[in-house]
Amino acid sequence: MEIKESTSGTSEVLTITGKIDVTTSGQLQDAIIAGINRGGCDFVLDLSGADYISSSGLRVLLIVIKRLKEQGGRLVIAAASGHIREVFDIAGFTPLFPMYPTIDEALAALADTQQKQ
């Protein structure tokens, strides 16, 4: 798994390539927590290059979304494959993580709700 980090406006974008599994999910947790510690508040997880997620990845997402929510932050998902969306559905994660077809739409949604806040 590879993680590329970038910023767009006030949002941090983490682009994942490869598998989010029991051997790699710790890297994802470290990357998001590092972003939070840098003062990041809104995150887009770009899964356009991710082809797999297991419960180990879901566990990490639940840990970070709980922490973000305490701090008034948000994490949304962009460009998840059908297989990954199905795992989110089975795990009951779909209501917890807003999903958008593209990064641009995810960023626009975050910016839009920021303006309304």
């Binding site: 297991s54 419960s55 180990s56 879901l58 566990r59 639940l62 840990i63 979304i65 709980k66 929510k69 795992v87 089975i90 795990a91 009951g92 917890l96």
Partner: peptide, 24 residues
Amino acid sequence: TPDITQPLEERPIGGLGLHLVKKI
């Protein structure tokens, strides 16, 4: 069996792996 309808604040960390297996 985990309760996958709980709000975020009440969701326990973990316990989803075997749930996925049973559903798949």
